[in-house]
């Protein structure tokens, strides 16, 4: 019965209208290949983040001098090329190299940011999936809880936790993770609900696919894509928040080189030695920007898939 003529009927024509409709539907075609190419901004952001990760993993490779080495004669040197290993980005009140301290600070800062994001995403995903997959009552309850959490500013929530548990790097990470979780939960719940109502879940039900398999085969993978994109976007935010807590003296404690703590240490010398705060500040801003730029790129590509 395989009859060649009707196959030919559909294949012969340069199916212009239909093909174009297909391209729109799938977001592909000539235009999408362009979208998958890496732009200059993304390349820069990527290069910066790679450098930051290298600094985090093996700071000795990049940093010219010991970040804790004191050199009172060089205290408060402005950024200059005089002794680039030490003074390229200036020195602090004890003559320590800001450049070295930023490089050595990448580790704790990125670790706090990444762990906080992971905690937030995991908690948010669990809560969002739970709400989206359960019945109406559970969904209602979770939603009200999320609304209450939304009403409290995230930083306040974090401070609250620190007050109870006491300051420190671990607490900061936990606090930031917890306070970002409601946002993730809400987005994931929406995604889960949309997929639950989708045509392909219905088709799977009609076919006789079991609920567990529908969850594993369709719901989870289709939620995971946006989740990944959200995570990269959230990384920048988490780093900024962790730095903010350190700045308030609730995270990493000096003299350990953490960007937020360095920012705080420079605050009293702001009028005389601006580089002490501005340089670590720049590191934070650039990291957050790069992570966000890459996050957007990931999100766009995930959507086009």
């Amino acid at each position: 019965m395989t009859d060649l003529s009707f196959r030919a009927a559909e294949q012969q024509a340069p199916v212009v209208d239909e093909q174009r409709a297909d391209d729109r539907a799938s977001g592909r075609g000539a235009g999408s290949r362009r979208r998958f190419r890496i732009g200059a901004g993304e390349a820069l952001a990527g290069a910066y983040l790679i450098a930051a990760v290298v600094a985090a993993v093996a700071p000795g490779l990049l940093s010219p001098v010991d970040p804790l080495a004191i050199s009172p004669s060089q205290a408060f040197s402005p950024p200059s090329l005089a002794d680039p290993a030490v003074t390229l980005l200036g020195t602090d009140e004890s003559g320590r190299s800001i450049l070295s301290r930023i490089i050595h600070g990448a580790g704790p800062s990125l670790l706090i940011g990444a762990s906080a994001t992971a905690i937030g995403l995991l908690l948010g995903a669990a809560l969002g999936l739970f709400a989206g997959l359960s019945g109406r009552v559970v969904d209602f309850a979770v939603n009200r809880l999320l609304e209450v959490l939304f009403a409290l500013p995230g930083l306040l929530l974090a401070l609250f936790l620190i007050v109870i548990v006491g300051p420190g790097v671990v607490t900061t990470t936990l606090a930031v993770g917890l306070s970002t979780a409601p946002g993730y939960a809400r987005i994931i719940r929406g995604q889960v609900l949309a997929i639950r109502r989708s045509g392909y879940i219905e088709a799977a039900t009609v076919l006789g696919v079991s609920p567990v398999r529908r969850l594993i085969r369709h719901m989870l993978p289709n939620t995971a894509g946006p989740l990944l994109a959200l995570g990269t976007l959230g990384l920048g935010q988490a780093i900024v928040w962790a730095s903010a807590l350190s700045y308030l003296g609730l995270g990493a404690v000096p003299p350990s080189p953490e960007w937020g703590a360095m920012l705080a240490a420079g605050r009293i010398y702001l009028t005389t030695a601006w580089w002490m705060s501005v340089m670590p500040g720049l590191a934070i801003v650039l990291t957050a920007m790069s992570a966000t730029a890459l996050g957007r790129g990931v999100q766009r590509r995930v959507r086009a898939l």
């Binding site: 539907a25 989708s198 045509g199 392909y200 219905e202 088709a203 085969r217 898939l305």
Partner: peptide, 8 residues
């Protein structure tokens, strides 16, 4: 038909 298929 398209929406009845998992896009992945």
């Amino acid at each position: 038909a398209l929406s009845s298929f998992d896009p992945r």
